[in-house]
Design a protein around this nucleic acid. Structure first.
Lengths: 328, 328
DNA sequence: CTGTTAGCGCCTTCAA
DNA sequence: TTGAAGGCGCTAACAG
């Protein structure tokens, strides 16, 4: 069933049908009514592909995140969706799974699907997908990263400052053993570590575990930590640069009888919702996640409606949130 | 940049270019190589809309869930994505926000975008969107619901049995005050309540709060409960038919000084990952969430490749999981 | 206000 | 193996 069919049935031309689809004012009300009737009768749905191909807006924006099962991204997406759908757009999410090729593929897909805008949380601060995005003229905005090249819209936490915030706190806690746990190599992590390193007085003796990416991996590393670093004997402070992982670590630590924050104190990063109501509420560096989604949505809408404006750049200040998992 | 452009540059016809795009064997290897080179040089990406319009598969499936910020759906989607992307498909998620009109709109969008398959977690067990789906010939599968009409593929927990499981446990706990908290009107909830009612000996005196849908609303209702039902004096058992909400309730209850499970015991439903590592690990009815996503993915793939087969119907048995929030 | 005519970018017979 | 031509369903001028 196409507009041709319903045009024939209404005894008019395809153009008129197309006009009522796009809600054009120049079509006689009664005719419009009749066409609407017929469309409803057949429960006709216009083909989005054809509409898109023929040049009209699809009223759709795409968002690519790095993983689904990380509450950080979900919260961002949720805040984003709230705004964007109020504005009459629909959003489609997909996940790159921290894989640059997959990311590129998804970006290509969105571009070639002619979405009206794209939000990308990139694996790297400089990549083929970002280059592609720059070359096509679809409005896009990067989140959770500061791009290498200039003139690209982004919104990111000031992770360098966040790392320093954490270091200050570690200096005050002043524990004999200090451990840093980081995840996938990513710009956000690099900055956090850099800020932390510069400000933390015991950096030289700090032990660093890398590539702990997921909640599950956090859960697993905890027992390794215990035996390898003798956690049950030495008072320790843990900086886990991602709440999701931190919560996994804490879970296991509790299960194997390590007290928190007494024996081991844990600081996270992100301040996902969960952090406030998990087993041991998490002391963490907050980056106002919901705001990121909301700001991203507003800026993207602005860019869609007003493509010539300068690309917005947001660097959001982090904030220390002290809860139970690490106290002074 | 279109296939016409690159055809011209290669000195061949569009047809040949199209053939290399679809990896057709009948194109001279060296020619193919040359075309590939040129495509790569211009980082050419074929237009998905046009491809779809012209009839080829998009290798995309859509999944519509009811809300983003509910871990249940995210876990399902994550399991689903894992399988589907291994099979070379990409997935796009969107959220109906418990709104039937929005759901219909999203379904129409997916249909008219010619996706290869659709997963829908419907707001209602009988709706315009389901009807639409039946009428078009795109493979689809419903999750988290048992459709009213027959011949529709679905995968759902046996919520009736789940409700009875909860009731058994409540009978054993035998508390003087019993409260039931449910969310949006939804078939899953109806069945859970029905099973619970039939088996619970104190159903008649059970107090029922409805329309508590989100984590936040659970958090808010908790203080109401305390004052209105005198929670701090009377030993109470709470059946919250959704873990997400239960966790919100527990959070607030703890904050206002109610001990769990001593004073108030709480039973949830779903067994989202979070339930095992939240403040007070949740006693709940488990429905093997990840499996739902995985089975859904496998069945959908099967339906895509083999459309004539009978529609699969999965009713997953629930399981009681006793943790700390409610003990006997 | 309404119909006609071209495309949008790609795939797919059908001939060559 | 390759090319030419038509069409997928819709929109967008351009005439009337």
């Amino acid at each position: 069933m196409t507009i041709a069919d319903i045009a024939k049935e209404a005894g008019v031309s395809k153009a008129s049908v197309s006009r009522v689809l796009s809600n054009s004012p120049k079509v006689r009300p009664e005719l419009k009514e009749k066409i609407l009737q017929i469309m409803k009768y057949h429960s006709f749905v216009p083909n989005k592909l054809a509409q898109g191909l023929a040049g009209s807006s699809r009223n759709t924006v795409g968002i690519i995140i790095e993983e689904l099962s990380n509450f950080f991204f979900i919260e961002v997406a949720d805040g984003f969706d709230r705004i964007i759908s109020q504005a009459g757009y629909s959003m489609q999410i997909s996940s790159s799974k921290w894989n640059e090729e997959k990311e590129l593929e998804l970006v290509q897909q969105l571009i070639s699907s002619r979405v009206d805008g794209i939000i990308l949380s990139p694996v790297s601060d400089e990549s083929e997908s970002i280059r592609l995005l720059k070359d096509c003229d679809i409005p896009f905005l990067l989140i959770n990263i500061i791009p290498k090249t200039k003139g690209i819209a982004y919104i990111s936490c000031d992770n360098y400052a966040g790392g320093k915030l954490a270091a200050d706190y570690f200096n005050k806690m002043n524990r004999p053993l200090n451990i840093l746990i980081t995840g996938f190599p990513h710009q956000t992590i690099d900055y956090r570590v850099q800020g932390f390193r510069e400000k933390f007085s015991k950096w030289d003796s700090t032990i660093h575990y890398k590539n702990i990416n997921t909640f599950e991996q956090g859960y697993e590393i905890a027992s390794v930590l215990k035996t390898r670093n003798n956690l049950s004997e030495i008072k320790t402070a843990l900086f886990v640069t991602n709440d999701n992982v931190a919560i996994g670590v804490i879970k296991k630590l509790l299960e194997i009888g390590i007290s928190i924050p007494g024996q081991v104190s844990v600081m996270g990063y992100d301040d996902i919702k969960l952090s406030s109501f998990c087993r041991i509420p998490l002391t963490t560096i907050s980056q106002n996640i919901k705001d990121i989604g909301i700001i991203a949505a507003m800026e993207l809408l602005e860019m869609i409606h007003n493509p010539e404006k300068a690309k917005p750049e947001h660097k959001i200040a982090p904030r220390l949130v002290v809860r139970e998992s690490a106290v002074i």
